[in-house]
Simulated assay, not measured.
Amino acid sequence: MTSVFYGFATKHPDVPFTLEEVEEMELMRGLEAKKYDFVIGGRHMLNEDTRLISPSTKDELMVIIPDTHPLAQNASISLQELASEKKILMNPYTAIYYQLCMQIFQQANISPNLLRTARVESILNTVSIGEGISLLPLNSLPIFRHDNIVAKPLNPAVSLAVVMARNKREKTSKKLCLLNFLRTLSKKKKTSSLRRLIFLLRLEVFSY
Score class of each variant (00 low, 15 high):
residue 64 I to C: 01
residue 27 L to Y: 06
residue 198 I to D: 11
residue 160 L to F: 04
residue 170 E to G: 14
residue 112 P to A: 14
residue 90 M to K: 05
residue 143 I to K: 10
residue 164 M to S: 04
residue 78 S to V: 08
residue 24 E to M: 13
residue 60 E to G: 01
residue 170 E to L: 13
residue 177 C to V: 07
residue 45 M to R: 08
residue 11 K to I: 10
residue 24 E to P: 03
residue 139 N to H: 09
residue 102 M to Y: 08
residue 4 V to Y: 03
residue 19 L to F: 12
residue 178 L to W: 06
residue 171 K to P: 00
residue 183 R to V: 14
residue 71 L to H: 04
residue 166 R to A: 05
residue 40 I to S: 12
residue 55 P to F: 14
residue 194 L to H: 11
residue 186 S to D: 05
residue 124 L to P: 00
residue 202 R to D: 15
residue 206 F to W: 13
residue 99 Q to P: 01
residue 39 V to Y: 10
residue 134 S to E: 05
residue 163 V to P: 05
residue 127 V to L: 10
residue 126 T to Y: 11
residue 33 A to H: 09
residue 91 N to R: 14
residue 146 H to N: 05
residue 180 N to G: 11
residue 166 R to F: 06
residue 144 F to I: 02
residue 160 L to Q: 06
residue 24 E to A: 12
residue 143 I to D: 04
residue 14 D to K: 02
residue 6 Y to C: 15
residue 11 K to N: 13
residue 126 T to A: 07
residue 32 E to D: 15
residue 108 A to Y: 03
residue 62 M to H: 02
residue 34 K to Y: 14
residue 6 Y to H: 15
residue 151 A to G: 10
residue 76 S to A: 11
residue 151 A to F: 11
residue 63 V to M: 04
residue 140 S to N: 15
residue 30 G to E: 04
residue 177 C to W: 15
residue 202 R to Y: 15
residue 78 S to T: 12
residue 71 L to P: 02
residue 45 M to T: 12
residue 131 E to F: 09
residue 96 I to L: 07
residue 14 D to A: 11
residue 126 T to Q: 09
residue 90 M to W: 12
residue 205 V to C: 06
residue 157 A to N: 09
residue 136 L to H: 02
residue 71 L to K: 03
residue 178 L to K: 00
residue 172 T to E: 08
residue 18 T to P: 09
residue 144 F to S: 05
residue 45 M to C: 12
residue 66 P to D: 07
residue 50 T to D: 03
residue 68 T to Q: 08
residue 171 K to M: 09
residue 181 F to W: 07
residue 123 I to H: 00
residue 203 L to M: 11
residue 89 L to Y: 12
residue 187 K to S: 14
residue 14 D to E: 14
residue 78 S to K: 00
residue 72 A to E: 01
residue 72 A to K: 04
residue 2 T to Q: 14
residue 133 I to E: 09
residue 195 R to L: 10
residue 138 L to R: 12
residue 162 V to R: 10
residue 208 Y to D: 15
residue 172 T to L: 11
residue 46 L to H: 02
residue 15 V to M: 02
residue 89 L to H: 10
residue 127 V to E: 07
residue 113 N to W: 01
residue 113 N to E: 08
residue 63 V to W: 06
residue 82 L to W: 04
residue 189 K to A: 13
residue 76 S to Q: 10
residue 5 F to D: 14
residue 147 D to R: 05
residue 156 P to D: 02
residue 131 E to G: 11
residue 153 P to K: 06
residue 196 R to A: 15
residue 45 M to P: 14
residue 25 M to Q: 13
